[in-house]
Write a protein that binds this DNA or RNA. Sequence first.
DNA 1: GTCTATAATTTGATAGAC
DNA 2: GTCTATCAAATTATAGAC
Lengths: 188, 188
Amino acid sequence: MATEPANTEDKILDLAEHLIRKNGFNGFSFRDLASGIGVKSSSIHYHFPTKAELGRRVAERYTDRFLDQLGPLEEASADADAVLEKIRHAFELALTRDGQMCLCGVLGAESSGLPEPVALATRRFFERVSGWLIDALKRTDWGNQQTDRAIEETATRTLALLEGGLLLARARGMAGVFDAIRPERLAG
Amino acid sequence: MATEPANTEDKILDLAEHLIRKNGFNGFSFRDLASGIGVKSSSIHYHFPTKAELGRRVAERYTDRFLDQLGPLEEASADADAVLEKIRHAFELALTRDGQMCLCGVLGAESSGLPEPVALATRRFFERVSGWLIDALKRTDWGNQQTDRAIEETATRTLALLEGGLLLARARGMAGVFDAIRPERLAG
DNA sequence: GTCTATAATTTGATAGAC
DNA sequence: GTCTATCAAATTATAGAC
C-alpha cells in the first residue's frame, strides 16, 4: 500500500494539487493547506514563498508525472490506435484514480487570470503532451502515410476530446460520461 | 452598430460574464465590477444581493442566449453533419466574437468549488445543450438508423470535443487551434 | 523547519442618508 | 437606485523567537 508522503513539501504539493483540481487556483488559500496538513500558514511560505511559485511547482510536477505515465517515445506502439488508447488511458486515470479533472485543464480554463509563472507552466503541459502525441503518431505505420499537418490536427483533436471529456464528466456528475469518449479510429 | 447596454443591471451581467470567462468565478470581485462600470460596490449588491445569485443569473442568461443561437429543434437540418456544423459554429463564436472560452466550460472546470446555485446552473447548461443536440440528431436521416445510446454517445463526444477545443485554444494562445476541431463525419 | 504575531490589503456584505 | 461609511472575515506575505 502507498505510504504517507514523507516530508512537508510533498504533503503541500499533494494537497495543493488536490485543491486546485477541485476548486481552481483562486479557490484555495495558504491557510487551507496549513490546516489540512496540520501546520501553520507561515510554514507553507517557508517552503513556497509565493502562491505563484507554489502553483508553478504543482503544475510542473503534474506534467512530469503525466509524461512519465506515457512512457518514452521509443517504447510507443507502431499502431496508431494503440497510441491513442495509451493517451486516452492516461486521461481516464485522472478520473478513475483521483476522481478529478486534469490539473492543467482546470488551470487552462482560468489561465488568463493566472500569475504568469503558472500560466506558463500550464502552456508547457499542453506543449509537451501535444509534442509527445505528435511524435508518437509520426512513428506509427499510419503516421508514415500522413502529412505533418494532418498528424498535428489529429493530435489537437484528440487532446481536445480528452480534456473536454474530463470537463463534461465533472460538470455533469461524472457517471459514465467518459466511457463515450473514444478517439477516432485511424488504422483499420 | 450595437449600442451601450441601457441599464446598470445589464452592464453588471455583461461585465461579470466577461470577468468570469477571463478569470473564473473566484477571480473577480464586486469591486472589480463596480470600478469597471463606474458605480460603487454597494450598488452591485442592490441589483444582486449575493455573488452566488449573480453567478447563477450570468449562467442562466448565457445558457438562454446559447440555445437561442442554436434555434428551435423544428428548424434543425435533417442532415446530421449540418447539425454538428451548427453546434460547432455556436462554440466557435465564443472564440471569434468574444475571444474567450465558453462561460460554462470555465465554470465546469471549477464546479466543485462553486456555490450550489452556480454549479446547478452550470449543469443545466450542459443538460440543455446536450438535450438539444440529442433531439436534433434523432430527427436526422442518420439518427433514424441509430440506437438512442449511439446518438447520446455521439452528442457527448461532440460536446467534449468542442469544449475541449476552446480550452486548448485558450491554454495554448488560441492561434488557429480551433480550426482543427471538426466533429466526426456521420453521414456520407 | 515550525511557531507566534502581525502587517497590509481585499473580500462579500450591510446600514442608512439622499 | 446610488451614495458614504463601515464591518467582520479572509487573504498573501513577512519578522523574529525557538
